[in-house]
Design a protein around this nucleic acid. Structure first.
Length: 595
RNA sequence: GGUCCGGUAGCUCAGUUGGAUAGAGCAACAGCCUUCUAAGCUGUGGGUCGCGCGUUCGAACCGCGCCCGGAUCACCA
């Protein structure tokens, strides 16, 4: 039982004792005392005044008196308006610190929850390289998975690669026309960028042809429909679907180039998957489920042959599920893959990390699954995140304003390298060791920059202002960690061991604040897990780092002459590092030992 | 037009189930390195929490109405 629960229970008891009113623990409003007041915990007594029939001040004083007499940990109390501030004896906080230090893997659940989650994220198209939008999606998907794991859940991370369709054929056609047999190796390019170039090349050729046709007298609409290269792409898609060996071979070859490129980017971003699905293998799925739903009367068929779901009773429209020719659409496919997943893995929740532009799609997905009678329909959860935009608005590939993932990461690493060298921080490190630190710092900066923002919100990214390394940033958190590690190394050299704190050596206010912050980690992890919100952890890590830096500035650790005080501070610093690293790890941030 | 999401300092963002005088960072200005890492610390200035009404001891937070911005509503994925 935490002290918080204990206090709440005792406050409830106090109200009953003093005023004869039955209040539940949940009705007791207990909060951490704000810094500008004295105390550790604050009870808001306004709700009790209707029982006491006295002023808020008198009620608070009466309750405070009762609590002080009955709870040994309470050293004193003060009353300001309707707020009862309770001060806990300092020895208690030292006990908390020692308990935390003795906890293995502090910040992570000690027991498995027994629940299993599947998290789908990334889901790229294999016709162009990953961009800034994917970076947000990948960081978010990875971080949420790690947070769920920290909460004791079993997590399966999956990726659904969109590797088929007209957009893939466009790159293929352009490659056939313009590549002259070139390969990523011969061009000296990363495979995804190489293929992406041909996708762009297709668009250029297409536009030229449309323009020519328009000049020749066709209407704009006709020209767009009849451009030869587009017809070729459509023909290619037909051939692919028919299993034409030559087409399939080229498709496979080009997709492999792209996937090799993705592999590299994923490694750089530090994300991975337990299982990868390919749409080329799933795109026909769901059809049988829809036909069964039709037979059961859950769906209906139009005269032209297409199959639909009527969602008007849910306030939505009608949704197409099978085309006239009986083929599947995106929704059908997703129903099919969801069905497969729930059959294969016994998951309690299936989380799709997908941008908010698909909110409607996932709303419909859950509704149709429910309509089809699947009991797992309610386990579908869309973790919807906002887009990443430029100051001018959305990124547009046609206008070349897309911020490429590889380029951006390279740029941030360069900034980290330049900053570090300027500060001369890694003198004595080998080239390789230093590069490793630059990479960690750069990725940390990028991850924190994105994850500290509420997932729902749109992020405005200004490429002209490079990612910051000072203030409320990833590197600040990493720097704090490195500082503690440095102190620990110095302590070791001096033969000072990290040992439990002496309960008789009192903590200063600043030290108590740090202990309280560190003690909050499990609650933050739980809350972040319940809300799928890395931002909560990011803000917590920053708060802790900031508090530590102030402490570090005001209180010498190794220079402290009183051995008991020195030991306490060293332990405190050490546990700060533990908590910071735990929180940062759930954001996918790696901590350098020096920086 | 329907549905969903956002609007907090010049900029980027926090703000716990409604609680005390709304907080950080960046930018600006002024200080602090012979001391455990200055990617740090301290200080100054900066606010109609989009607007209005309501609910109550108390509203950035809850309710209703409006304003602004975005997303979405394909036999595309």
């Amino acid at each position: 039982m935490t002290i918080e629960n204990m206090l709440a229970a005792r406050v409830a008891a106090a109200v009953k004792e003093c005023y004869g009113a039955q209040v539940s623990e949940k009705e007791v409003q207990l909060q951490e005392t704000r810094k500008e007041f004295d105390g550790d915990w604050t009870v808001v007594v306004f709700p009790f005044t209707r029982h006491s029939r006295k002023s808020p001040e008198a009620t608070a004083a009466e309750l405070g008196d009762y609590l002080q007499r009955h709870i040994p940990e309470i050293q004193e109390y003060n009353v300001i308006k309707g707020f009862l501030n309770l001060t806990i004896a300092p020895a208690y906080w030292i006990g908390v610190l020692n308990d935390i230090a003795a906890t293995p893997r502090y910040g992570r659940a000690r027991q498995p929850s027994g629940k299993r989650f599947m998290v789908e994220y990334s889901s790229p198209n294999t016709n162009k390289p990953l961009h800034l939008g994917h970076i947000r999606n990948n960081f978010l998907g990875w971080s949420v998975s790690e947070i769920l794991r920290a909460n004791g859940h079993d997590v399966i991370m999956v990726n659904l690669v969109n590797d088929r369709g007209i957009h893939i054929c466009k790159s293929m056609i352009a490659w056939k026309h313009f590549a002259n047999g070139a390969t990523p190796e011969s061009a000296g390019k990363k495979g995804d960028h190489f293929v992406g170039d041909y996708y762009v090349r297709f668009d250029r050729a297409y536009k030229e042809q449309v323009e020519e046709l328009t000049k020749a007298g066709l209407s704009a609409d006709d020209a767009r429909e009849r451009a030869p290269i587009l017809l070729e792409a459509r023909e290619m898609l037909r051939k692919w679907e028919a299993g034409d060996p030559e087409t399939v071979a080229l498709w496979r070859r080009m997709n492999d180039w792209v996937l090799d490129g993705f592999e590299e980017t994923y490694r750089l971003m530090g994300v991975s998957f337990d299982k990868v699905y390919f749409e080329s293998e799933t795109y026909k799925k769901g059809r049988d489920l829809i036909l069964k739903g039709l037979a059961d009367g859950a769906l209906y068929r139009k005269e032209s042959g297409s199959v639909w779901a009527d969602l008007t009773s849910d306030g939505l429209d009608h949704k197409l599920l099978l085309r006239d020719d009986g083929t599947s659409v995106y929704m059908t496919q997703d129903i099919g893959t969801a069905h497969d997943r729930f059959s294969e893995f016994d998951v309690d929740e299936e989380i799709y990390v997908v941008g908010n532009e698909q909110n409607y799609h996932f709303q419909v997905l859950a509704l149709v699954c429910r309509k089809l009678g699947f009991e797992w329909a309610d386990k579908i959860k869309h973790l919807s995140h906002g887009m990443v935009e430029l100051p001018e608005g959305r990124m547009k590939s046609r206008e070349g304003t897309v911020v490429d993932a590889d380029d951006l990461i390279a740029e941030v690493i360069e900034t980290a390298r330049a900053t570090s060298r300027e500060l001369g921080k890694l003198d004595g490190y080998s080239e390789e060791e230093a590069e490793e630190v630059y990479r960690k710092v750069a990725l940390g900066a990028l991850k924190y920059f994105i994850l500290k923002i509420d997932p729902k919100k749109t992020i405005t990214f200004n490429p002209k202002e490079s990612i910051d390394f000072n203030g409320n940033t990833g590197p600040f958190i990493q720097y704090t960690y490195a500082r503690v590690r440095s102190v620990e190394r110095k302590a070791q050299e001096a033969g000072i061991e990290i040992r439990p704190a002496d309960p008789l050596s009192p903590l200063t206010t600043k030290e108590q604040n740090l202990v309280k912050l560190i003690a909050r980690l499990p609650a933050v992890v739980a809350e972040a897990g319940a809300n799928y919100s890395p931002a909560l952890l990011a803000n917590y890590a920053y708060e802790l780092a900031k508090e530590f830096n102030q402490f570090y500035h005001d209180y010498p650790i190794l220079k402290e002459e009183n051995p008991a005080a020195r030991a306490t501070r060293l332990l405190l610093a050490s546990q700060c590092a533990v908590a910071i690293r735990a929180a940062a790890a759930m954001l996918g941030m790696e901590m350098p030992e020096r920086m």
